[in-house]
Design a protein around this nucleic acid. Structure first.
Lengths: 343, 343
DNA sequence: ATTAGCACTCTAAAAGGGCGAGTGCTAATG
DNA sequence: CATTAGCACTCGCCCTTTTAGAGTGCTAAT
């Protein structure tokens, strides 16, 4: 479907205006906004056609026009202006993110980042980290605590650090602990997370004889911890922001429901895509989101795909700006993860 | 101020009713609810007096009565029925909490618990952990990671486990690491957190000569981490629930503001009190909370006071039930912290 | 002390009534 | 043929008025 340049200009102008005010836009408004000298009647004729073509619709007979999803799609793909981040924007994002660097642990960093994003954009924000295909165990470390408790610290190739506690029936002196530690690391270091299956664990204990039982307990804990590292993560922050968008008033409960459901978020955000992606309303095929738009960006660790970070908001939203923000945001996260990487 | 038994019954009935429906309660309703055979006119007279005594007020001339803060206070202290948890209640709470046990780390456990509480009560929930007076460093553990990065794991006497990453310029072999580790533990293990001051750190490095500089960097990281452990923690979850209480509609923004401010929450929750505590509206002396009630309960670690967990909601709230819930909840947390304790 | 009865008050919801923004259509114009 | 001025019409919004009903306080009777 091809539309004339003039229609495009009109559409762009309508969307810009509507995003700004939230009110249906009338022919006269556009007439003034556009410096092309055309009368409102002409605009009206054009708008009528755009209406029939499915780009605009009227809330009721005597109201101005509101963009449809098709219109937003065109707007984003072709019509909207490019928003370039000001130095101030960049500094703002950098300063928000930099505070999370201290922590080193990937998970905490993302937790912090998504909070900051929610504050920055005043929108509910989500980050997902899928199972990392090539994540491996780097090392397993045993730390004896008081009593018979052992703290197990698992470090992976993507910088995840996971603590787990286990009770051990073995009375371990320093040497015993070292032997045990060597035993674990010889078999597990370098293993991809995916290969740490229950069978694998079983095969480790099989030849151990009398020690099988107590060591089995530790391995059980390690297994659970590894499974947890390997399981995809979802974090949501800033749900409260939904309230401030009157566009969504009637959908708030639905959207909140959706946001509380890990599974749905994962499938939504993990649909393969590269760079940045915008989903408008029903394009998501998720009925709870039929009045919302989702913008998400990929971040990476060392160039391999790592996860996504994004926002959910009303369809009437400043796409240009938010896309630019998220692009920069994902970039910055990638950079931070790089820095705190220990390969 | 003494009031007759009959007035008390009437008040109790009004509050019960109002908590249930949220509508001003009229004389006729009470007349029917109370099995004492009194006419609505008599109730009306009593209500009038209670009005003058400050226990009730009328939203407007021709409306029923609504309880005042004074009334809620009396209701909670004396009038309300005792809610005993059903086995089902207990199982529900237990099953919500038990999932958090796995994790061992005190902070994560609380994080999980407060989320579960918010879901359970459908109210914004808060937990605070003040500086633990007698918390000490149990051990400091060094784990070499790839490159020149060292993972420092600090364990305290109350079960906090804190990871921190540092770069070290020292090329450390296993032996060097052990020496370093011994050095840290000899000086720091058993120290109360409060005594790990900058001066203390300084005094440690002073006699080290050529190694002072690189070790200083590690100590710096340890210092920061210890300060972080020692700083009071506040976690809030379920803010979104505020929206569903029409009583608070106009205050939502204020309450949200308050909930986002660590400092205010700390002073509110850490006012010394024992067991369970209810703060009604302006009793808190916090203007943002003038239409909300706060219920909080203390949990302990090994019998010493440890922190609080609580909810914030409208003043029209099921006090009896929530108090019982929180009491049990705090107990359960105390028990869980006990279990996963490692001296 | 209690109660039936009643006039009175006040809100919430329904019903009415202009206002005005914005439209679609028609007929005129370059 | 594209464009435009002009105009009647529509319909949501807001403001006012009306109505209904719940609940009261008071009075006089028991």
């Amino acid at each position: 479907m091809n539309i004339s340049r003039r229609k495009e200009l009109i559409l762009a102008s309508i969307v810009d205006r509507y995003i700004e005010t939230g009110e249906p836009v009338g022919s006269k408004t556009i007439c003034e906004a556009l410096d092309i000298s055309l009368s409102s009647a002409t605009i009206r004729n054009e708008m009528n056609e755009l209406d029939e073509m499915g780009f605009l619709r009227q809330p009721h007979t005597s109201a101005g026009r509101v963009p449809t999803e098709t219109c937003y799609r065109l707007y984003i793909d072709k019509l909207m202006g490019h928003y370039s981040l000001t130095e101030h924007d960049k500094m703002l994002i950098d300063s928000l993110l930099v505070r999370s660097r201290d922590n080193g642990d990937t998970e905490r960093l993302l937790e912090y980042a998504v909070k900051a994003l929610a504050r920055l954009t005043a929108l509910p924000s989500v980050t997902t980290t899928p199972t990392q295909e090539n994540e491996q165990i780097s090392s397993i470390n045993l730390i004896p605590l008081a009593g018979d408790t052992i703290l197990i610290v698992i470090v992976t190739s993507t910088g995840t650090i996971k603590n787990a506690l286990a009770r051990s029936e073995l009375e371990l002196n320093a040497e015993g602990l070292q032997t045990l530690s060597r035993f674990f690391n010889e078999r597990l270091s370098g293993q991809p997370l995916s290969s740490v299956t229950r069978e694998f664990i079983d095969s480790m204990t099989a030849p151990l004889g009398e020690f099988a039982q107590p060591i089995r307990r530790l391995l059980e804990t390690i297994y659970t911890a590894v499974r947890e590292i390997a399981s995809p993560k979802v974090k949501v922050e800033g749900e409260v922001n939904l309230l401030f968008y009157k566009d969504l008033q009637s959908d708030v409960a639905d959207v909140l429901d959706f946001l509380s459901e890990t599974h749905g978020l994962l499938t939504l955000f993990e649909k393969p895509h590269s760079g940045i992606r915008v989903i408008i309303g029903s394009e998501s095929n998720i009925k709870e989101l039929s009045n919302t738009s989702v913008i998400s960006a990929r971040y990476t660790i060392k160039g391999t795909k790592a996860g996504t970070i994004g926002i959910i908001g009303p369809t009437r939203i400043n796409y240009a700006k938010l896309i630019a923000y998220l692009q920069y945001y994902a970039q910055s996260i990638s950079r931070l993860l790089e820095d705190s990487e220990q390969q």
